[in-house]
């Protein structure tokens, strides 16, 4: 069977051949331009050096970074199975979300510390939606609950929850957790929403930030100190 060409395809052949040559030329130019001088250490094909664009870098170091990292670990140990890795909870199981939750984003962590430490029960309204029929276990590490979280871990996990998935509230310190636990020492029952509503989210139990006192307030405060305490303060001031 001898193949022989038929007439009428001369034009098509020419088009194909011209196209092929054109494609070859393109190939040569492409290889010439984008090969990074055939250097084995050059991974960017751009002929004018690496892109100068910065991808989200150069951000100031986040002071809460260490706590958020530790909080992620604590979250993984305790919270993720119910509240999910994206903080959206599981509404079908009556597990409220943490993302955008008004409880999480309150000014201060007093209620959150209580919930994490001692658990929660009963119906609760989170961001306008009511969740009932489920309960949250206590997570404070005690003799009965050896797999629980320490005070530092509770502070870290709350810092993580309050600053992830679009949440932006402040951090939580271990001292705040310690103070709340001091206030609620001996409590074993899970909290209900009604009880927590009566507790202010911030203030109380936290070390008051140093604010300027009026002279009268200063006098009142000094009156409460004993003589030895006064002497110690004055000695300290003189040393500085």
């Amino acid at each position: 069977m001898n193949p022989h060409s038929r007439s009428g395809f001369g034009l098509l052949n020419s088009v194909l051949l011209t196209g092929s040559v054109g494609l070859l030329l393109w190939g040569g130019l492409y290889v010439g331009t984008y090969s990074g001088r055939f250097d084995g250490n050059e991974f960017s094909e751009l002929p004018y050096g690496r892109p100068a664009k910065v991808v989200g870098g150069g951000a100031a170091a986040d002071p809460l970074d260490a706590q958020k990292k530790a909080g992620l670990i604590a979250y993984g140990k305790s919270c993720v199975a119910c509240h999910q890795a994206d903080g959206n909870g599981n509404p079908s199981l009556n597990i409220p979300p943490l993302t955008g939750s008004d409880w999480v984003l309150a000014d201060g962590p007093n209620r959150m510390i209580r919930i994490v430490a001692h658990g929660m029960q009963g119906p609760v309204k989170v961001s306008g939606q009511v969740y009932q029929g489920n309960a949250m276990n206590p997570w404070l590490k005690t003799a009965d609950n050896p797999a629980g979280l320490t005070e530092q871990e509770i502070a870290d996990v709350l810092t993580y929850v309050r600053n992830s998935w679009g949440n932006k509230a402040g951090g939580v310190t271990a001292e705040q957790v310690k103070a709340v636990l001091g206030e609620t020492a001996g409590r074993t029952d899970a909290w209900t929403a009604e009880e927590l509503d009566k507790i202010p989210a911030s203030g109380g139990g936290t070390a008051p930030a140093p604010t300027a006192l009026t002279p009268d307030q200063l006098k009142e405060a000094l009156k409460k100190l004993s003589a030895d305490e006064l002497k110690a303060i004055l000695d300290g001031l003189k040393a500085n």
Partner: peptide
């Protein structure tokens, strides 16, 4: 990004426990 052993083990057992 996410490396903690406890987290990973749950995820390996059933990823839907961690991410619905």
């Amino acid at each position: 990004r996410l490396g903690t052993n406890g987290f990973n083990l749950v995820r390996l057992f059933d990823p839907r426990l961690v991410v619905t």
